[in-house]
Design a protein around this nucleic acid. Structure first.
Lengths: 112, 112
DNA sequence: GCCGGTTCGAATCCGGCCGTCCCGACATCG
DNA sequence: CGATGTCGGGACGGCCGGATTCGAACCGGC
């Protein structure tokens, strides 16, 4: 059952572009602008994107195209988000509770 | 006791600039970009800013210079904020409770 | 091993966002 | 009356955020 139809581990820049609707030069450009975006390269020097890399691309895309931050604004947001990842020090068990509670609170906040 | 040292009702563009550190031409420019910023004009056509107008200027200033949204991004945020002002339909009494609760929740959220 | 398609980095180009500058005119104050 | 502050409009400009172009290297399929 080692079929590779289950889930790919790595993606080429072309695949990421197809998935996100972005152009290769934009991905390369964003790499120069965001420390957070650092796909590995294979022996040939080609970018090799993990799912995590793609998530970051989409995150940046959202900040720039939907929220409409400037590049620097988006960087700021991502940096602050990185800080909050200190929360990762919290045990996974407790973590899930907190995430659920957080979702509830956010919904609640909107109503206030 | 009708001394006017208590609190001014209106401010000139120059005073607003002094208070905010912005230049007059920026304030005029922002007026063309934000529907939300509309100081009245006196008979002579001069802008006359209320405290509320100044608060809006500072709000915009914060979104652009600190949060670093694009003009369009800032507009978006302000528009969404306007929607939430429907909350004003809530009785003042209950309103204060909610604001207090909200402050608490926001602090709490940061910890999650 | 050759070919078409993909990717590479670097350099260059460019539209438009976000002001900035300049101007003559008018208001207000002392 | 001059000094100072403000007016709006139009021309100007820096630079942000890509877009284009380039020659070269690589890759899978045949």
């Amino acid at each position: 059952m080692h079929t590779d139809g289950i889930k790919k581990l790595y993606y080429s820049i072309g695949e990421v572009c197809e998935a996100t609707g972005l152009e290769p030069h934009v991905l390369r450009y964003w790499e120069t602008e965001f420390d957070q975006l650092h796909p590995r390269k294979n022996r040939a020097g080609r970018r090799v994107y993990t799912d995590e890399d793609i998530a970051m691309v989409e995150r940046i895309q959202h900040l720039l195209r939907v929220e409409k931050y400037t590049l620097e604004g988006a960087r700021q947001v991502l940096d602050r988000a990185a800080d909050e990842d200190e929360v990762k020090a919290v045990p996974a068990e407790r973590r899930r509770e907190l995430l659920a509670l957080r979702g509830f609170l956010q919904a609640l906040l909107k109503k206030l």
